[in-house]
Amino acid sequence: MSIRYVIRRILFLFLVIWVAATIIFFIPRLSTRNPVRQRLAELARTGGFAPGDIETMVASYNQKFGLDKPLLEQYFDYIGGLAQGDLGVSLHKYPRTVIELIMDAIPWTLALLLVTTILSFIIGNLLGAVAAWPRAPGWLRTFATPFVLLQGIPPVLMGVLLLFFIAFRLKALPLGSAYSTGVIPNWSLSFALDLLAHQILPALALILGSVGGWVLSMRGMGVTIHGEDYVNFAEHKGLGPTTIFRDYYLRNTLLPQVTGLVLALTTVVTSGIVVEQIFALPGIGTTLNQAIQNNDFLTIYGIVLFITIAVATLMVAVEFIYPLLDPRVRHT
């Protein structure tokens, strides 16, 4: 891997982040909506202060958030703040900053998505590989088919179905939220179990909703690899099925499947956000959803930009491990 390649990819990453930031900055400003005014109008409705005050408040807010400056100056301030890791302040939960809100929420989201993505990647790929493997026992191959059928169902719908059948009808698991109402978070075992019980359905929804995609792509890949001369020659060598499966089959699907994982990152994050909303779980999705409901635009933009940066960075980072997965890949 040459230094030039690394530098090029990092510059590309900055380009992606800059483009995303620019889109996120300018699109809302094309709209006639004034977030501050709207926010204050809402406060006026609920808080009951006279509408006459609004104009002065708008002016002072605009000054506070720098919204009275010329657009380009605002833009440079914004990009400059971004470079220092500043995503602005929340309109709704002022004076808390957007970064603070994100940092409160991110552990929940990260834990849920990390566990479910890894599990569904492993399960899906194994099932898909087996489904494409002509020597696998018949029952094992049919076992993979239902998972393929799940492939079109987004995790959110899976969540609604699971809520209905398991939580609502069977009353086997809770209907949502992070832990039972009235319980104060503590370090006891019962609280840990309670927490876990609330995470099972969302996790299941995310796994079931994404595992089919892996089964499908792995099956397609497996069928292609099975036609390859090197698999054929491996059989002529008299290798056992296990060795061929592991070293000739799975090993060669690793690069394309990891690439697939990288491409699926945006879908994973999107699903996570919406599933959190369905299950009323704390996390970045719920924070985003609250911001949407409360017209807290600066938080919306901040969260979107944060996730974009995280996903793009991860994508570029994974590229650097490709040469380990396939010796033919040379980054130059």
């Binding site: 992606v16 483009v19 699109i27 809302p28 709209s31 933009y301 979107v304 974009t308 793009a312």
Partner: peptide, 20 residues
């Protein structure tokens, strides 16, 4: 290739959220 790493859905959230 620059637009694809940006989660399209989130940009859609920004656009849809900015509309009245």
């Amino acid at each position: 290739s620059v637009l694809i790493p940006i989660p399209a859905f989130l940009i859609q959230v920004v656009i849809a959220g900015s509309l009245d």
